[in-house]
Design a binder for these strands. Structure first.
Length: 485
RNA sequence: GGCCUAUUCGUCUAACGGUUAGGACGCAAGAUUCUCAUUCUUGAAAUAGGAGUUCGAUUCUCCUAUGGGCUACCA
């Protein structure tokens, strides 16, 4: 019996393990849970799943809080904000799991298992796989007590029925049916006394009244095990929303190790938090229209489980860059300016009008990390390749550059107002006088000024950025080089 | 190996039995522009393969292939 979502308040949860960075896939899981809860005026809960004591990483919980905060996904209940279903950290709930494990044992749905590693290994088949043989299931009470008293390590295992089938309906994948004989007697409580995910998620989701379980599809095939547990307790099943994976390429999931799969790395690369969130929202979900840019509120409004796709999606940083560029362009200049300054205050090292530079940059970069390269010409100019003057599109050659640059030089040296319009018009005049096309002349001046094909602005703007002295020096240098050939 | 699951342009996806298979990123070509960039227009580009069901299959069923997941005292 699955819960009826119209009867109860929607409650979703994000339940990460504090094992390090916040993976982009985790972020999406959190996002979908958040969107769904908010869309239905329900609650979004944060629960920390720290039952694997060996994988704990210092500060990982802080990373989770920080990520959620930056992404704007505020949880309504959680370790830091409280709530009626606490504690929200699994390691603080040990006595709760103990109690429910005992109940399960009393009902015959779980049992003590004292098998050691050697015996477990001996159960492996040729392929190295193993299915526990319920060896300890029928141990009598005295024997169990004796072993416990003798301090023999034990685990508590789920007692899965050997016949029948378990099926459930997933809101994304539809009906899933598994034969019980395929299921394993999973460990519910480890020998260190902590529960496994297999047990804790069931107990907690029930106790925290979670109505919709959003999680990665890696849990799809173990969900029957969990359902058997709900059934054993006599609890209603939550509704399941298993999510397809986000991949690095066709073969590999986005890997934690690669260094490009976590939220903070993307921030480091100069992506805006909301751009990342917006992009990730669209990976595996479509809003049923052709809108691609959403505020968080708009996402809440548009979100619907029916738009979630079943197939995994490959993360495409190129498209993320495009979206990020859209968001960067929309930023009020002051905000972009301070972001850009904060992002790289040491590049360029050449003194330059940072405000002007950033104004030019804002419409031309797609991530903050593009700034150093885009501004590199300010610091490094010498020895650029003279073939840059040859451009078919601009109808420019090194020879035309050589012939036209002297007049540009003398004009700029003697110009009385050093401002963009004045410079631009002066350059236009030269084009007229020399009979060189405007586009050609501007190309030549820009190259002679920067030594780069791609610059954060046109010829006159580069003059403004460099200032009269540097501009004239650079033109002289370029002309000398052309003459030397 | 067993079980679960997926498969539309290079990528993200739309079309939930009838469309010239649509959009977006990227790519290419052209146009506009105050030069770079932007912007605009156009173009190339896909239903994994094979059987069925049907008047008609991207869509439903089965098989095959391929990908992913699970098969842990990790989650």
């Amino acid at each position: 019996m699955q819960k009826n979502d119209v009867m109860t308040e929607v409650r979703t949860r994000f339940a990460p393990s504090p094992t390090g960075f916040m993976h982009i896939g985790n972020l999406r899981t959190a996002l979908y849970g958040y969107l769904f809860a908010k869309k239905h005026h329900g609650k979004f809960i944060l629960r920390i799943e720290d039952t694997d004591r060996e994988r704990l990483v210092d500060d990982a919980v802080e990373v989770i809080y920080r990520t959620l905060r930056l992404a704007g996904l505020q949880h309504d209940e959680g370790p830091d904000v409280g709530g009626n279903c606490g504690p929200y950290v699994q390691s603080d709930r040990k006595d709760i799991y103990d109690r429910y494990a005992e109940e399960l044992i009393n009902r015959g749905h779980a049992y003590y298992c004292f098998c050691d590693k050697e015996r477990l290994d001996s159960l492996k088949d040729a392929d190295g796989n193993r299915r526990y043989d319920k060896h300890c299931l029928h141990m009598n009470k005295q024997e169990i007590e004796k072993k416990i008293a003798a301090n023999i390590p034990y685990v508590i295992r789920q007692n899965v029925p050997e016949t029948g089938v378990t099926s459930f309906s997933d809101l994304v994948y539809g009906c899933v049916t598994v034969e019980n004989k395929e299921l394993h007697d999973n460990v519910l409580v480890k020998s260190d006394g902590f529960p496994t995910y297999n047990f804790a998620n069931v107990v907690d989701d029930h106790l925290m009244a979670i109505t919709h379980v959003f999680r990665g599809m890696e849990y799809l095939s173990s969900t029957p095990n969990y359902n058997l547990l709900y059934e054993a307790f006599g609890w209603d099943l939550p509704l399941y929303v298993h999510l397809p994976h986000i991949m690095k390429d066709k073969q590999h999931k986005l890997s934690k190790r690669h260094g490009d799969a976590n939220f903070e790395d993307f921030l480091q690369k100069g992506f805006l938090p909301h751009a990342i969130l917006n992009y990730v929202a669209l990976l595996g979900w479509n809003p049923k229209n052709e809108v691609e840019k959403f505020t968080l509120a708009e996402l809440v409004d548009s979100f619907d489980i029916s738009g979630i796709s079943k197939a995994s999606a490959i993360f495409d940083e190129v498209k993320l860059r495009w979206l990020n560029a859209q968001y960067i362009k929309e930023l009020p200049f002051e905000q972009f300016h301070s972001l850009a300054l904060r992002y790289c205050n040491d590049t360029p090292t050449t003194p330059v009008d940072r405000e002007l530079l950033n104004r030019l940059l804002q419409t031309r970069i797609s991530a903050l990390s593009d700034i150093p390269a885009a501004a590199a010409f300010l610091d490094r100019f010498e020895q650029y390749d003279l073939s840059l003057f040859d451009c078919k599109d601009a109808k420019s050659t090194a020879a035309t550059a050589q012939s036209v640059l002297p007049s540009v030089l003398s004009l700029l040296e003697n110009i009385n107002r050093w401002d963009n319009d004045a410079i631009f018009h002066a350059l236009e005049q030269i084009a007229e006088q020399t009979g060189v096309k405007k586009k050609t002349l501007l190309w030549i001046v820009r190259i002679a000024l920067t030594g780069h094909v791609s610059t954060p602005g046109g010829a006159s703007e580069m003059c403004m950025l460099l200032g009269k002295k540097a501009a004239v020096e650079r033109l002289k240098y370029s002309l000398d080089r052309l003459n030397a050939v």
